[in-house]
Each structure stands twice: as C-alpha cells, then as structure tokens.
C-alpha cells in the first residue's frame, strides 16, 4: 500500500536561512507519527508546508497521489488535511459550537445546517466539552480552548490530522486527559502527525517518529530506537544546534 502523506525533498528558505532542508518522509494510513526536534529545528515550518500556510521553495508534498505543495491552504484543507495551531487559535466572537461547525462546513467533509450542528455537538462531547455549546469562548481555560480547536479540526473528518504542540502548556492531569484523547483518535484509525516536545507523550502514543535538527531530518523510525540514537541525543542535549 502506498503512503497517505508523502513528503519528498521538501525545502524552505527564508532569505539566507534554510528552515527545512530537503526533508523526505512518508506517513501510512492509520499511522501516528511524532515529528520531534529541538526548538528552531523546522518542525512547525514543516507543518506549515504540508498545510499550505507556507509554500515550499522546492520539493513535493502529496496526499494520496494529489500534489499539495504550492496549492493554497483552503485547497489542502478540502483535500482532508486539518490542523491545530501551536498558539491556540479560537474564534472569539463565535460560540463554542459555532467554532466547531466552522470546521465542518468548508473542509473535506461538508455539512450544513442541523446536520453540522449535530456533528459539532457530538464532537464537543467527544473532546470533553459536552453541554458547553453556548459557553463564551473568552471564559474558557487554555485546555478547553485546545479541546475546542481539536474538535474543529476533527469536524471536517480529516484524512490527515496535524497537531502542532497540542499538549504543550497543559498541567500533569490535563496532560493525561490529552494523551488519552489522542490515543482514542489513533485507535479509531485516524492518521496523525504530531509535533511535540512532551517526550512521555511521544513514547506512549507514537509508533514511529521523525527527528529534525537545524532543518534536516536526522532520524526516522521506531521511537525507542530513535531516541537512543547518538546524534538525536546530541541534538537535544546541546550539539551544534544549541
């Protein structure tokens, strides 16, 4: 079977800085892949290339045979790529349920009217915000806003879900809830790529991880093996990158 997501020699240059340096990797259907690396290693840039927030300088990104690279973000979203943001982005003047409906109307799966609202209601329950459909967004805690963002991403029934440090900033008990939520998504067969710094989460959730350092892919494989690899350890503990 071919890969669902295939990144081939993706490259992104900002002025003189090579943020992503000819990175290639594949993600198969149903796989949960961790994308890790030290700060500034190009992980979020990589996600931005996949979702179309940025256009790659060169290289190809494909989703199930469709070329995504250099297409606009809305096209990529409609192909079935949904994401959350590193710094949570909710829609403050919309109600909680409308925030979720926003994900259901224009994306990969398209719902409208009562149908979209029913779906959004289900998803709010799913992420633990049941009964809070009309809650004002501004009064929501950080984790609740993150939950809301996840529900919005799920509302389009994405073929590929990209989580950008979705677990960052959560306290230990919230972290547990968050990890089990992602585990549920994995168990129901969603394909997920998660950029993450929380190593416990990577260890307990991911089958495989891709490690980036200074824009280059330095490792790709089974999580426990990769994390003991010398250059990976060096990159994290202060090799040339720190």
């Amino acid at each position: 079977m071919t890969a669902l997501l295939s990144v081939h020699n993706a490259r992104k240059v900002f002025g003189g800085l090579v943020a992503v340096n000819d990175v290639s990797f594949d993600v198969s259907r149903g796989e949960l892949v961790g994308l890790i690396g030290p700060n500034g290693s190009g992980k979020t840039t990589m996600l931005n290339l996949i979702t179309g927030a940025l256009k790659p300088t060169s290289g190809t990104i494909m989703l199930d045979g469709t070329v995504l690279s250099s297409r606009p973000a809305h096209f990529i979203a409609r192909q079935g790529v949904a994401r959350t943001f590193q710094l949570v982005r909710v829609l403050p003047s919309l109600s909680a349920i409308e925030n979720v409906v926003a994900g259901a109307v224009f994306g990969h799966a398209r719902h409208w009217g009562a149908d979209a609202y029913a779906l959004a209601e289900d998803l709010l329950h799913r992420v633990g915000l049941g009964g809070r459909a009309d809650a004002p967004i501004a009064s929501m805690t950080y984790i609740d806003q993150k939950r809301l963002e996840l529900a919005r991403a799920l509302a389009s029934d994405p073929r590929l879900l990209l989580l950008d440090e979705w677990l960052a900033g959560l306290n230990p008990s919230e972290l547990k809830i968050g990890i089990s939520l992602i585990a549920d998504l994995r168990d129901e067969g969603r394909t997920i790529v998660m950029v993450e710094h929380v190593m416990d989460a990577i260890r307990s959730l991911c089958d495989r991880c891709v490690v980036m350092s200074s824009g280059t892919k330095i490792a790709d494989g089974n999580v426990t093996e990769v994390l003991t690899q010398k250059d990976v350890v060096a990159a994290y503990l202060g090799g040339e990158d720190a």
Binding site: T51, G52, A53, P72, A73, H74, A77, R78, A82, R83, F85, R89, L91, P92, S93, L94, E98, V101, A102, G103, V105, F106, G107, H108, W112, R152, S156
Partner: peptide, 24 residues
C-alpha cells in the same frame, strides 16, 4: 448562508478560515 458564516470566520481569524477550507 455559508458565505455569511465564512465571512464571520474570516472576520475573526483569516488563518483559521483558510485552514478550515475557506477560499478567503
């Protein structure tokens, strides 16, 4: 309509709108 709903999302956050599949 969907257009009106799309405009409300765009008014809040264009980046989110784009990644939700709206041709802004």
């Amino acid at each position: 309509s969907r257009l009106g709903f799309a405009m409300r999302i765009i008014g809040n956050d264009e980046t989110v709108a784009r990644h939700a599949g709206i041709d802004v």
